[in-house]
Design a protein around this nucleic acid. Sequence first.
DNA 1: AAATAAGGTCACCAGGTCAG
DNA 2: CTGACCTGGTGACCTTATTT
Lengths: 540, 540
Amino acid sequence: MEPSGSGGTGQPLASTSGYRAGPSSSSGGSSSSALPLGHVGSRLLSSTGPSGEPGGTGSGPSVSVSSLSGRLNTASEASASLTLSHGLNTNSSVAPHPASTSYFPSSSSSFLGQQAEYSGGSSGGGVMVPQHQARPRPPSGCVVSSILSSPALSLSIPGSSSAGLASPSTTTGPLGQHLSVPGSSSAGLASPYGSMPSPSTTTGPLGEGGGGGPSGISTTSASVSPSHGQQSGFRDTSGSDAEKVQQPADSNSPKQPFVPCKVCGDRASGYHYGVTSCEGCKGFFRRSIQKQIDYRCLRDGKCMVIRLNRNRCQYCRFKKCLAVGMSRDSVRYGRVPKRSKSVEDHSVSSTDSASSSQDQLALENKQLAIYDVILSISQAHHSHCAITEDKIKSIARRPATLMSKIHIPPGQIQFSNEELEVQRLLMWQQLATLITPAINSVVEFSKRVPNFSELSQDDQLVLIKLGFFEIWLTRMARMIDRDDNVVVFEDGSCISREELAVVYSPDFVTSMFEVCSGFNMLNLNDTEIGLFTAIVLATA
Amino acid sequence: MEPSGSGGTGQPLASTSGYRAGPSSSSGGSSSSALPLGHVGSRLLSSTGPSGEPGGTGSGPSVSVSSLSGRLNTASEASASLTLSHGLNTNSSVAPHPASTSYFPSSSSSFLGQQAEYSGGSSGGGVMVPQHQARPRPPSGCVVSSILSSPALSLSIPGSSSAGLASPSTTTGPLGQHLSVPGSSSAGLASPYGSMPSPSTTTGPLGEGGGGGPSGISTTSASVSPSHGQQSGFRDTSGSDAEKVQQPADSNSPKQPFVPCKVCGDRASGYHYGVTSCEGCKGFFRRSIQKQIDYRCLRDGKCMVIRLNRNRCQYCRFKKCLAVGMSRDSVRYGRVPKRSKSVEDHSVSSTDSASSSQDQLALENKQLAIYDVILSISQAHHSHCAITEDKIKSIARRPATLMSKIHIPPGQIQFSNEELEVQRLLMWQQLATLITPAINSVVEFSKRVPNFSELSQDDQLVLIKLGFFEIWLTRMARMIDRDDNVVVFEDGSCISREELAVVYSPDFVTSMFEVCSGFNMLNLNDTEIGLFTAIVLATA
DNA sequence: AAATAAGGTCACCAGGTCAG
DNA sequence: CTGACCTGGTGACCTTATTT
Ligand SMILES: [Zn+2]
Ligand SMILES: [Zn+2]
Ligand SMILES: [Zn+2]
Ligand SMILES: [Zn+2]
């Protein structure tokens, strides 16, 4: 119980932690220092860290992602639980979501020396992760490849991303489109998505879902009962999507499968003008073809059109509408022909050895699939990451977090062991509060990564657990201010490097800063960061 | 078998080719160069080509349309076969349709020096076509005149079309309806859709396709036996409509003869209210007569009613319904009387020489007959041409087809003969892949040209063989970019003029570009192009 | 009984609305 | 101007009626 436990920094990498079984149980593990980030060593750190020393050395409280599986299952929202535990008895455990404040019962979730567990099973309680470099693939690794399993994706996303990462400035996506932004993050949303995407028409009738909702509105009789039965895959209406930004924790539970709009990636409401599209794009297109339009692009006519910025450039939005095949001639009235199905099974793609005639078509569909995947991931990132180019602008730095007045007296360098321990605890508490919302964000983001939801709950859980730290670090990278040596969190809190060093080992903090610094030099834009994190997730 | 064969370009015009009897049979003919387009000289080219030199000189692989007759027969779908052959043993033969991947048995289809065959018979296997200008009429020419044999048509279609050809902008059809579109296809973002028609983007329930999935789920009773007898021409139900556009080759194999709706040209589902009509028009008419109607035309009451825009003007749709004879009185219950067959329409028009009293009526019927023909052809064109105004928008250019990495090094002009030969083969292969789907398209289009199907199989075959190149060229014309000197294919592939010149003689390519350029100046819309190609087909 | 069409159903979408 | 929501169709299917 007492803080001392095993020494902090020198400890090998076995992250240690306890969990709270109740408001006052005690954890057997060492308390002093398990990283609040789930695991110490990460590919990023270990491979890039200046001090190549393998043992990340960091230690501190740990994040319990246990019961995360509950969140993954959209149906069992109520039982979802997510807390942070640090092996101490403080009440610092925070739940980001009102619905998920329940503490762990008393079973499950003890993550001490999880190395074995990590490599072993997926369903275990807490997950503490491996060490670092040359980390063996988790058992579910085989499944991983199917996450982004759009036929094309497995082959293209990596390529696309690697290209993106390699060149600091302008990169070209699989479709030859620019994925990067003009300047650094200043360009905001102007990021061009190169020329047109190519036809997308595909679409098909997204899944038909099926409940037999009675609704009956007979044309002749008075009719009534607007109780629509939500048959098709769309039909949402509720969709309070990530809505307004700034929400640190995303709080929505999309019952719907989320069919993306072909134009902007928002939730599609149906098949409009021949294209699966959202209400916004539908209305915009209708207005555009009704009255004379004379849109003009203020930039190069290559604006990326996604939900968050679709209203920035009418020209490019309309252009995108046309590109994906919207047309008054393509409207489909009446009930959808009982045919459809989500036949787009990727499995078909393996028939590449088939005739060459459909080669072109296949290629096109492949590119289209890639584009859609990119769009979806980009959209997911924007919806579920609090640190996007746009949102950063709204973040006002706050001198310090008010919750726990930690101030390291300027003059005083020396702390007694006791003082240090207190400082560490307070600091940990603060960090936990700051990081917790990010967990939820990553979970929501993951759920929107194409095909991720089709993994088993266990596999999803494992991947998120393994990937969280790196995803979080990737997202936070641009919030590190090398000049002032501080990290600015999404709520504006500034944590100085020294403060971090209270909780983590100085070497670890140094590594983090180095890695982030290097990452920042790549100057990735939001979309690219989103894609990168998706890959990190998939290859955790 | 081996590529060398006889020299390439200098060869007279006798297109040569071999065919593949199996994966490895050899053709006796020279391999180097038979035109993939079936024949070199065409009326279009020979009459307009700058270099009036008769010998088109072009040479290259040839397109085998052999066994095409299988496709013409709607019943023998399975045996249909269609491939490209170029006299080499490469596996480049492509079948555009899964159902037609069978290679030629071992009989038929050898088309070497088809000049004789061409002028002689029709049933021969492969057809290689004549030379060029002043091509003699095929023996079946006499039959041709009966193709578009609506009495009025022989006199009107040409007229209508010639008018259409003359005026680049707005033309007026026989019924006084606008056949033209607002601007050309260049309208782009400005005003996408002018006023009316300009049919486009198929999409709808045209295709047919699919397997007869049983569906029948009757709400009340247990329902049952989806084993419809399919007696009449209609009764479709299966229609897995062409669904998404963009299909380069019409991938549907209509089991049904496709009986068009008298009102809108869509697939008719039966005989409703006294008229062969589709489900949509049936329902519309029923609704119209049930509740009082007060439709009103926002224009001049002369809107063209076709499937693509039938919902844009209720007034004109209902008017059309009445015009074609829909009435509550003319219902016919029960099984269709005895005689059946589609004898009805012509019979009506045969009364042209009637007395003076019913002169108006006769005239009207005549116009109606013409209108029907135009409607059917327009509909057929939209359904089976991948290069319509609407679809073009969705075509994103691709720098080169990835299938065969052909790149002509910019600086290098000189090729050794060997290199040239290789280039030619690769290029041919590429072209073959691109053109193959078009063959199927033309076949399907032809089958929907009124009365074409009533010709003998042999005659149909001959006409298609003779007309394919010109039809294809007509369709492709608007895809030629004179500025960049490239041809954009329906899948977005860009083939440069220089690349074409590798396969064909430069003169031939020049002629093609010239002809297309001139054709483009006519600024025809989709309907007009469809009508033109129908005429080309009929007068091949 | 089989075939076939009228009529009913109701999933679905174009447009219009109007607060934001 | 945008887009969530509502209204009035629309047409793919299905049931019922009629005729052979
Ligand atoms: Zn949208
Ligand atoms: Zn723009
Ligand atoms: Zn109709
Ligand atoms: Zn009208």
